[in-house]
């Protein structure tokens, strides 16, 4: 239960940061927090008191399925971390380009629509 509450808090903090903090760098950090909240929720639903879901070669498949935590969620979280990291890298790169142009990181300047 504690992990669900934590993940809920992380998601709310992340959403607050993205929409109400006027700094692009802080927005991106908030996105990372939001992502971590979702990852934690994913891990938590897969946990059933079992062992770490790493299948060793000498363990048969049905024994592995009984003893370990649900492996699907772990695979999902790993994939999600990779995707998230690449998204953040691209966003940080673009914010550097825009910072060089405007000399500020304020969202109200950099992200302004015209």
């Amino acid at each position: 239960m504690a992990s669900f509450i934590t993940s809920g808090l992380l998601v709310v903090i992340g959403l607050y940061g993205v929409f109400f903090v006027d700094n692009v760098l802080k927005k991106i950090i908030a996105l990372e927090i939001l992502g971590s909240g979702v990852n934690l929720a994913l891990i938590a639903i897969g946990y059933n008191g079992g062992t770490i879901p790493i299948k060793l070669p000498n363990v048969p498949l049905n024994v592995f399925a009984k003893e370990s935590a649900y492996p699907l969620t772990h695979a999902l979280v790993l994939t999600n971390i990779v995707i998230e990291a690449s998204m953040l890298a691209v966003m940080l790169g673009v914010s550097i380009i825009l910072y060089k142009k405007y000399k500020t990181l304020k969202g109200s300047v950099i992200l302004k629509e015209d």
Binding site: V18, L34, M91, V94, L111
Partner: peptide, 12 residues
């Protein structure tokens, strides 16, 4: 600018 906006909202 448009791309960065799109990516931030997109990540959310």
């Amino acid at each position: 600018k448009a791309g960065l906006r799109y990516m931030i909202i997109g990540s959310v």
